[in-house]
Design a protein around this nucleic acid. Sequence first.
DNA 1: GGTTGATCTGAACGCCTGTTCAGATATTGA
DNA 2: TCAATATCTGAACAGGCGTTCAGATCAACC
Lengths: 195, 195
Amino acid sequence: MARTQGSHAGITGPRIREAALRLFAEHGFAAVSMRQIASAVGLQAGALYNYTPDKQALLFSLMKEHMDDLLGDLSRLPSQDAPQARLESFVRFHIAFHLDRPELVFIAYMELRNLTPENFRVIEGLRRDYEDALERILSDGVAEGSFEVADTKLATLAVIAMLTGVTTWYRPDGRLSVPEVQDLYWDMVRKSVSA
Amino acid sequence: MARTQGSHAGITGPRIREAALRLFAEHGFAAVSMRQIASAVGLQAGALYNYTPDKQALLFSLMKEHMDDLLGDLSRLPSQDAPQARLESFVRFHIAFHLDRPELVFIAYMELRNLTPENFRVIEGLRRDYEDALERILSDGVAEGSFEVADTKLATLAVIAMLTGVTTWYRPDGRLSVPEVQDLYWDMVRKSVSA
DNA sequence: GGTTGATCTGAACGCCTGTTCAGATATTGA
DNA sequence: TCAATATCTGAACAGGCGTTCAGATCAACC
């Protein structure tokens, strides 16, 4: 056997990425073999190397795309509003974005240590960019007097950690809807930085 | 060769646990081999099985001990004070405890998926006990009128996520001391649940 | 319709995995 | 001093790992 019926790179490529994403999220990068990924897509392991130079590149590609999406969507938020309104936008966006792709969020955090040093630096840089966007909102609010935050760097990390945690417990069939969750978190964030 | 000079279970046992802890935290449970652990302690892999029935039991033992320590220390906090004072105690304790053993904290969260189902249930139950302690504080404060929290369950998880995040960025040689970090987080938590 | 190139198989490479165990040696207690 | 026991080695087991590649087959285009 060799090339199989219906084989098409435009279809196989995304399917490999989806399978890898699911398996990495469930078992962890190190615990998932190329043969497992191939099997999930109905291929032999060798065929994967038409789509990625190696396993590491597959992980990095997933994480990089995720971070690019995150920063891309973030840049589309209104940036001329008052700090309080921008903070609310940020909070609601962060929750919605993360609840929309819990597996990628999980991987982008858990598998950082499985990146090569240079790949790690890239992802870490993008993460820093994201944090900076929030810190800018907090700083603007402090300067304006609408926020009271003793340490904007710490507050930035505290808020992001609090919000990202939503992915560990939220279930679509649970008692709370996404808008309700957004309201509840926004209420806490708003008070935590209030003057 | 066989039994080596100076060999003693009372010394080797803890050294194995320390090496496993360090390696699991750095590379992840799945990425660390029994031979690596043995090598870090100066043993052959087979010798590890005098101390643990298998690799899984070694991971579980580390996590179980960690959770027992956490709940043990928690139970020694004053429990008769007003909710506001109990919440402050909880916040300061949580930060100090977690900053004192960042590797264990990391493992206890990251390696949950590498536990067998029954081991997972045990750790998850202990984690739930810990969360319940905080939720009780928040509920008491709401009942008393000193806190205003729309959803105590969500607020519990939000506060814990925010506080635990400190382990991802805090460095002993950084610009902030532990008491300063405690003050800053407590300030945010206090306001976030305030009436 | 025939040819070219894209896609995949299947086997192979060298190496690593968790775990077991017989046997060897050091320590301990009598 | 000697026997008993605790501790560890070193080899072995069956299987899995990431990756490469020659060759087979299908899809697409002229």
